[in-house]
């Protein structure tokens, strides 16, 4: 590195270092089998969700243009049978992946952005502001998230946007704590004192020194937030609090419950959406645990 520094600009040195760090992280990630399995599964699911418009036509999803009977068992025309309206369950599940993934990812991104902003500023500025944000996130963390989500959705009305907002509201607090703790650790290191002595302002310190140090941990915790956001979305949709005009795995199962699919023993109608949720959540969990092991050395060798 020291020889590079003579010939390269500071920016190039930084990027070379970051590339190296990424490669090291990837090497530590790659050796974890469950993490790789999760990554491959996730890649396949995302591809299917992106390709869904090619595989499923709008007519397959329309209640009025359905061609099958009411809850028909699997057949050649309908590999996974039909729902109460005669639509193909396979088409519904393929289409539902889009909404479940979009809501899970968007809600997580919103939650992570709020959490990182609050945590970073809280740890950096400290004082009464730091105290207040810490207490506030503590308070949020204690509240039962499903109860808060149900209460908020019940008064805010049902749409994709309110679902995302509500899930973000109940999930930002953990990230705030995590980022705040990491910020406090990094802040006390000598190189930040050096940066301050050289005249670095608040903005420079936060964006150039603190944020890059916090981001890997945030990434790992975000990967573990997505599955809980997806589970939360499907639970809310199953309870009937989802957007009534769109198809998600939770809303398919909501319809199935309301139309008595369990008493009709329509296993082909019940199994696929639930297994799809399970698969996505499990893949995110496997990736998240592997990432956590990469960035949190205390756990290394422990995760299976």
């Amino acid at each position: 590195m020291s020889t590079d520094a003579k010939t390269l600009s500071p920016r190039a040195v930084t990027w070379a270092r970051r590339r190296q760090a990424t490669r090291r992280a990837w090497d530590a990630y790659r050796v974890q089998r469950s993490g790789m399995v999760g990554l491959v599964l996730l890649g396949a699911i995302v591809l299917l969700a992106i390709a869904a418009p090619l595989l499923v036509s709008p007519a397959d999803l329309s209640v009025t243009q359905a061609t099958g009977g009411r809850m028909d068992p699997p057949s050649a025309g309908f590999p996974l049978g039909t729902d109460t309206n005669g639509r193909s369950v396979l088409a519904l599940v393929l289409w539902g992946s889009r909404l479940s993934l979009v809501i899970g990812l968007t809600a997580t991104v919103v939650a992570i952005v709020i959490g990182t902003l609050l945590g970073l500023t809280s740890g950096y500025y400290g004082g009464w502001y730091g105290w207040f944000t810490l207490r506030f996130s503590d308070w949020f963390m204690v509240l039962p998230s499903l109860v808060v989500a149900i209460a908020l959705l019940a008064v805010m009305g049902r749409s994709v946007v309110t679902t995302i907002v509500v899930i973000a509201i109940v999930s930002w607090s953990g990230t705030t704590r995590l980022v705040r703790a990491q910020t406090l650790t990094v802040k006390s290191r000598p190189y930040l004192e050096r940066a301050r002595a050289l005249g670095a302002g608040d903005w420079h310190q936060m964006t150039k020194h603190l944020l890059p140090n916090v981001l890997p941990l945030v990434l790992a915790s975000a990967t573990l937030l997505v599955p809980s956001a997806i589970l939360m979305e499907s639970t809310l949709a199953w309870l009937g609090l989802g957007d009534p005009t769109v198809i998600s795995w939770g809303s398919i199962l909501n319809e199935a419950s309301n139309q008595g699919a369990v008493s009709a023993r329509a296993w082909w109608y019940l199994l696929p959406p639930g297994l799809a949720i399970l698969l996505v959540v499990l893949s995110f969990m496997m990736c998240g645990r592997a990432l956590e092991a990469v960035f949190n050395p205390r756990l290394r060798g422990e995760s299976s």
Binding site: L231, W238, G250, R265, P273, I277, L278
Partner: peptide, 25 residues
């Protein structure tokens, strides 16, 4: 650990529906 992660990833409401389907129906 594998089994518990699998159950942890299962949506509660769906597990309940499947349990009703198998054990009660």
């Amino acid at each position: 650990v594998g089994t518990s992660l699998l159950l942890y990833s299962t949506p509660t409401f769906w597990l309940g529906m499947i349990i009703i389907l198998v054990f009660a129906r």
